[in-house]
Write a protein that binds this DNA or RNA. Structure first.
Lengths: 387, 387
DNA sequence: CTGTTAGCGCTTTCAA
DNA sequence: TTGAAAGCGCTAACAG
């Protein structure tokens, strides 16, 4: 291994000078600097980040944990985050939680043990992920992305799922589809809980009817299983509202295989707008999450993290619900704050204490495609309705 | 930050003893050990891997670079590799090359700078990736997975693409589809080149005809573009053979949208068998790569990496081509070896010099679904044909 | 502006 | 067996 010492000797200077030249921290005599750089080049020297990190007590490295690398929504999030962090010279260490809180906790610890400067987390489970994340928050800057775990004293950047689901239901009801079925993931994570709650509220608000919700997992398999039950049960709804696109794709496949006309007999909607949503026949009406904005906001908060004032995001400012809401009360109430976020009137919320967790919500957009019928007052096919 | 020193003081022993207890390296008095463990528990001490790694000169960490985290084939590979490494106590650091050799080189350096013990790479570009990988190979154990870069002195674990493509063409020709079109990625990476070559060979061998190959990228967009050209050109082939499933999904979508009957008028095949291949209408006939076996073999080689004898893989031993081939000659010839691998008779290859790169090929399987018509001698719909 | 020196937190000789 | 001490490669005080 070639060390800084080797470079120093070859350049005929002290290691301190080498360090200064390479880090650009201090002014160094031009000629010396050149000698150092030559020597570095010649030896192919690269600084050892273990040593550097140990000494500096920072590594310019941030960790990111996602529930499932195989879910296209998360891989899109990973890509967006990665690009942004690279741009500012940070390295991202990715960890796959394999949809398992234990594996997630493990991964988080592995990251912490490597002295990351910050952590971006999409918690697997609203409760089971809390312990590991709370501990993590005690050691590094932590920002929750997309989902929140209960009681974790860390900011959350996510979209306004209530608005997203409400837009879907409004769209369907506008098309006179008034008997709905909701197929989603069980209330294990915060998005599933929020979407389920939002669905119930939307049903109540619009006065349509809904079959008992079918809650499983955010997977194609669950979508297939639920749709099979729907078809076999013989009580087809006028529309199936799905908690995410994977479920919707599973539902769609089963319905089409069973010869059910989509959207004529049954409409189907998804959530996330993953790339594959345009590849099915019919294509999938869904809710698009502004991934780049989410990534930018999360990274911004992470890098901050002292200019903690919840700046208004560059986009999505004209949402019906305030796009930015200060979190309420104490850290332990964070989950409650998340839960209530959509319901709180921003004007009533005092500027929170400096370090209280903040929730930043972005507005999603309804993307109307072929899996919902044409017509109706809310949106035409092909429309992209910003909320 | 709580250090080993804190634990030592609380336990009333020296740091050396703490280190010994925690690493389990040496025998330590039972009572002292217990005191140490209590202290650790009480303080929530975790060993600092920066310091430990710096001292030990190993980190029990391996890096993995993939061309695109968003490609489901690669995320499946990442998952399989991650699970296997976790099982043996290694941590994986994932890096996304963003399909860009420069970003890839950057990512590789970032990993090397962090003193990883080994690197698993799926090179983006057969030539442009060589420099960074060759350099990496000089510092850490390197294993190439799925793809190889030219001249890199490192083992390769991949599938026998020649056999895979040949099976597809045989299948189609067996169904009397004798006018083919090949849509794939340009010969930037080794798999694209191998598949293109295999296609040409298969066409020649079976005596069917083929339109000029349409080579772009391994993306849905390219599949769409190529299919649009095909439809607009008016010269529809009897079957479109695609270089991977993403392309095939794009082709399928465009054909179906254009009202072309699939598979009646045009059959379509993919490659990889990503999960989404079963979600389209019709479902996609494709070639499945044995991901778990690939991951196991690659990880095995990485961990090895001294028991370097090319052990016969547990599965896929009955492939028509030998599943395991020793690499030939010098490291600089590695690319040639890869290229010729399928064509070399294993019996002729002497046991290679201890450290010559080795190519380990696994047999893929043809998965017959609805995008190719029924009948024919080779495979029935629903079949899974091991090669 | 440059060099010397003292660690960062840990593992591992080397003595005791 | 245990402890003292050296040192992994680097950066940051502190002198000069």
């Amino acid at each position: 291994m070639v060390t800084m010492r080797d470079v120093a000797e070859l350049a005929g200077v002290s290691v301190a000078t080498v360090s200064r030249v390479l880090s650009g921290a201090r002014q160094v005599n031009g000629e010396l600097a050149e000698r150092v750089r030559d020597a570095q080049e010649q030896l192919g020297y690269r600084t050892n980040l273990l040593a550097s990190g140990l000494r500096r007590q920072r590594t310019d490295t941030v960790g990111m944990v996602v529930p499932q690398v195989g879910n296209p929504y998360f891989s899109a999030l990973m890509e967006a985050v990665g690009r942004r962090l690279q741009r500012v010279g940070k390295t991202v260490l990715l960890v796959d939680a394999e949809d398992d809180p234990a594996a997630e906790a493990d991964g988080i610890h592995r990251l912490l043990d490597r002295s990351i400067d910050g952590l971006l987390a999409v918690p697997v489970d609203e409760r089971a992920s809390s312990a590991a994340l709370t501990e993590a928050a005690a050691h590094v800057h932590l920002v929750q992305l997309d989902r929140a775990a209960a009681g974790v004293p860390a900011d959350l950047v996510a979209v306004d799922h209530r608005a997203g689901i409400r837009a879907v239901v409004d769209h369907l009801v506008g098309l006179e589809r008034r008997e709905l079925a909701f197929v989603s993931a069980g209330p294990r994570d915060s998005t599933a809980r929020e979407r389920a709650k939002a669905f119930d509220e939307a049903v109540a608000a619009t006065g349509c009817t809904a079959q008992p919700s079918r809650l499983g997992a955010y997977t194609v398999e669950w979508g297939r299983a639920a749709a099979t039950a729907l078809v076999d049960g013989g009580r087809l709804p006028a529309a199936v509202v799905c908690g995410n696109d994977l479920i919707a794709l599973g539902v769609l496949a089963v319905l089409v295989e069973a010869g059910v006309q989509v959207p004529e007999r049954v409409a189907v909607t998804g959530y996330d707008d993953i790339g594959f949503a345009t590849l099915t026949r019919p294509t999938l009406t869904t809710v698009r999450q502004p991934i780049d904005e989410l990534a930018a906001a999360a990274v911004g908060r992470l890098l901050h993290a002292s200019s903690a004032e919840p700046a208004v995001p560059a986009v999505a400012t004209d949402a019906p619900d305030p796009a930015v809401l200060a979190g309420v009360a104490s850290p332990v109430d964070a989950a409650g704050a998340v839960d209530a976020a959509g319901a709180v009137d921003a004007a009533d919320v005092p500027v929170a204490a400096q370090d209280a967790p903040t929730v930043q919500r972005f507005a999603p957009a309804l993307i109307v495609r072929d899996s919902t019928p044409v017509g109706g007052p809310v949106a035409q096919r092909g429309d992209e309705v910003s909320l």
